[in-house]
Design a protein around this nucleic acid. Structure first.
Lengths: 191, 191
DNA sequence: GTGCACTGACCGTCCGGACGGTACGGTGCG
DNA sequence: CGCACCGTACCGTCCGGACGGTCAGTGCAC
């Protein structure tokens, strides 16, 4: 074989995770099968099972990478603008990261949809993370309801897009994101 | 046979649809199989296929019943309070119906989750309905963004519950629903 | 030569769907 | 009335393919 890839290529594990996410986003969670993921990632089925020893472990991998990626992007975003960010800024930037990530990668929430379809018990971890966010942002002057509603609407848009339910034009989406960001900022002020 | 059921029981077709919804809500969309639905509904597999000649047709059945039920409940709710309802009232009552229906029946949006998992193309109909709502409520004095955000947050809560992602206590949920209803009313006033 | 990354053939089970059958409430007709 | 003949509702078995998962290799790096 002469044309080995010159640069070691994106590691197989990541390619597998990417393939799984895209499959869910484009074909629906029911089409997330081991064969399909392996083929889509350009890896044999045995290769997939070398990295993830079961379908459940693949789903866990998707979930944890999703969580880590959001955290990493959020940290990077906040580091960029320097200084210690306020709670409201953190909320706003989290909303922004989630919504910017979703069209860019093919559906960030794909992991959630897929995991929940296969094994709802896997969602316990995500629920706990979400709970922490709620407790944190609930301390904002706007109170629990205001920030929870912002988070809820963000999720609503995310899931709508993933489930092919979103009827928004790109311009409408831009306006909605802006409105959501504004709403997040509003949470800094008492109602 | 002596013990024929005295009252003709809930029609098999409805029982099948109920069973399918509950299966999705409780076990995840991946566990929605023809065998499981038939067994859960107390019908043979052949019986299921008599009413729905394929899995896709079962999913369509779930989707259209879901849409019809929301409309019917909304109409009933609005008829109860009499008089011609304002646009903002319609928005508020729609939110209420959606959120009250979800815990009562085991996940109203189950149809959407299941259909999207199996065959995303089926969502076109739902997307169109959603589009109409948006166009209608966008005429509210609060403008497009305000009412879209309310709809989005409603969906967010609905899907979070269906995907076993909702971390809210019952009391928190009650407070959130109240806040959502208030937000819907706010759409009647110009921002 | 040892270990890791990966292959591809293989296995048992589950899935969607097809099919041939049964039971039963009409309906027309001699 | 009696009986042949519908259509509708439902049953239970069977099949081919798809699915998750196993395993004995293979090749390359160190």
């Amino acid at each position: 074989m002469y044309f080995r890839q010159p640069i070691p290529m994106r590691p197989a594990r990541d390619r597998l995770l990417d393939a799984a996410e895209r499959l869910v986003a484009e074909m629906g969670a029911a089409h997330l099968t081991l064969d399909a993921v392996a083929k889509f990632a350009g890896v044999s089925k045995g290769g997939l099972l070398h990295h993830f020893h079961s379908k459940e472990s693949l789903l866990e991998g998707m979930l944890t990478r999703h969580l880590q990626e959001v955290d990493a992007r959020l940290a990077a975003q906040l580091a960029d603008r320097g200084g210690k960010p306020s709670r409201a800024e953190v909320l706003r930037e989290r909303v922004r990261v989630l919504l910017e990530l979703n069209p860019e990668r093919a559906g960030v929430g794909a992991a959630v949809i897929a995991a929940s379809a296969d094994n709802p018990a896997l969602m316990a971890g995500c629920r706990a993370v979400y709970r922490e966010l709620l407790d944190e942002f609930g301390k904002l002057p706007g109170g629990f309801e205001r920030s929870a509603l912002v988070l809820l609407a963000t999720q609503g848009l995310l899931f709508a897009e993933l489930l092919h339910l979103s009827p928004y034009t790109p311009e409408e989406r831009t306006r909605l994101v802006a409105a959501l960001l504004r709403a997040a900022d509003q949470c800094a002020k008492p109602s």
